Computed example of a mutant assay.
Amino acid sequence: MPFRRSDLADLSYFLAIARHRNFRKAATELGVSASALSHSLRGLEERLKVRLVNRTNRSVTLTAAGEDLHGAIRDPFAAIHEAEDMLNLHRDAPAGRVRINVPDEAAMRLLVPVLPEFVARYPDVELDVCVDNALVDVIDAGFDAGIRFGGTVPEDMIAQRLSADFRWVVAGAPDYFERHGEPLHPTDLMHHQCIRLRLGTGRMYNWEFERGEEALALAVPGAITVDNGSTASALALRGLGVMYTSEGAVAAMVEQGRLRVVLSDWASPGPGYFIYYSSRRQVPRGLQLLVDLIRELRPLGL
Rank of each mutant, 00 (worst) to 15 (best):
V114R: 00
H70E: 13
G181M: 11
M190W: 01
N101L: 09
W266T: 13
A120C: 01
E214T: 13
E105I: 15
M204R: 11
P174V: 05
A18F: 03
A78T: 14
R196Q: 07
M86L: 14
M108P: 01
R258D: 14
F166D: 10
I80Y: 05
S33C: 08
Y13R: 10
G96E: 02
R58F: 09
I139K: 07
T187W: 02
W168S: 13
K25Q: 11
L87T: 07
E214S: 14
G241D: 07
L89W: 08
A219N: 14
G200L: 03
V136L: 15
D132M: 07
D165S: 13
S268D: 11
Q288C: 01
L184W: 05
D68C: 00
V50C: 04
A78G: 08
L52M: 11
L184F: 03
Q160K: 10
R51N: 05
D227K: 06
G241V: 10
E296V: 13
A106N: 00
A267K: 02
D175Q: 15
S59D: 04
I73Q: 02
V226M: 10
A145M: 01
A215G: 03
N133S: 12
L111D: 01
L62I: 11
L69D: 06
P221T: 12
G272S: 06
R91M: 13
A236L: 09
G96V: 11
S268C: 14
A236N: 04
L199N: 05
H81M: 12
L8F: 06
E67Y: 06
V98I: 08
V242C: 11
T61Q: 10
G212I: 12
I294W: 01
E247P: 00
A251P: 03
D137I: 09
L110W: 01
C194Q: 02
P269L: 10
N228A: 12
F274W: 12
S278V: 15
K49N: 15
H70K: 12
L293N: 00
M243P: 05
G71Q: 09
M204G: 09
M253P: 03
A252S: 14
R260L: 12
V226L: 05
